[in-house]
């Protein structure tokens, strides 16, 4: 059943875009709209992308009408054996990667709203720049500029914060003459 097949990706997209507990309302609206116009789409792969655009739009409408946003509540799923591609990292390397991911997610959460939406569409939902522009109703130029601003900001936010002790150790260990 088509509806069932597209529910999970649509729901995930709504959740990533910050719909929170209104995510089920948003996807119901989006699915109804998408299937009403199903005849326009014969290519299944494009339908998925098109649906995500409608979901993004519904989430935006929700935000506009309620004038509030739910805190982006996400968790990082554990890597499955398949995701690791059979390459076993050392536990230390894996722990380090987990921390980096956690810090990155927290940094995304702290981005200004529009930059966060750009990052969500471009990287989490893997939409192209034109698709992101359509999904968010922005000019293409805004997608590009907000995405690159977001990347610069994330880079700055990810510089590790050290305690003074650790900072001093780092200074002692690094040649900076």
């Amino acid at each position: 059943m088509l509806v069932a097949r597209y529910t999970a990706p649509a729901y995930r997209a709504a959740w990533l875009l910050g719909a929170g507990h209104d995510a089920d309302d948003a996807i119901q609206e989006a699915l109804v709209k998408a299937f009403r116009h199903l005849s326009r789409f014969e290519d299944g792969s494009r339908f998925g992308t098109w649906l995500l655009c409608i979901v993004a739009n519904e989430v935006k409408n929700l935000h506009r009408s309620r004038r509030r946003r739910d805190r982006l509540a996400l968790r990082v799923g554990a890597a499955t054996a398949g995701e690791l591609n059979g390459v076993a990292d050392s536990p230390e390397a894996e722990a380090l990667a987990d921390e980096r991911r956690a810090a990155l997610l927290e940094a995304v959460r702290l981005l200004p709203e529009k930059e966060r939406l750009a990052v969500t569409c471009r990287y989490f939902l893997e939409l192209s720049e034109p698709e992101t522009a359509r999904a968010l109703g922005w000019p293409l130029g805004s997608v590009k500029s907000r995405t690159s601003r977001a990347l610069r900001r994330l880079n700055a936010m990810l510089a590790p914060r050290l305690s003074p002790e650790a900072a001093l150790d780092a200074l002692d260990e690094a040649p900076h003459g």
Binding site: L16, I27, Q28, F35, L104, L105, R122, F124, L151
Partner: peptide, 29 residues
């Protein structure tokens, strides 16, 4: 590197279990 990490992070992000909206959506359709 950051772009690569964001894509990889996206692949790992899980929201809650999706609700079953099939019946409701079909009823409206």
């Amino acid at each position: 590197r950051l772009e690569r990490e964001l894509r990889e992070l996206g692949g790992r992000l899980r929201g809650p279990q999706a609700p079953d909206v099939t019946a409701t959506v079909l009823a409206r359709l």
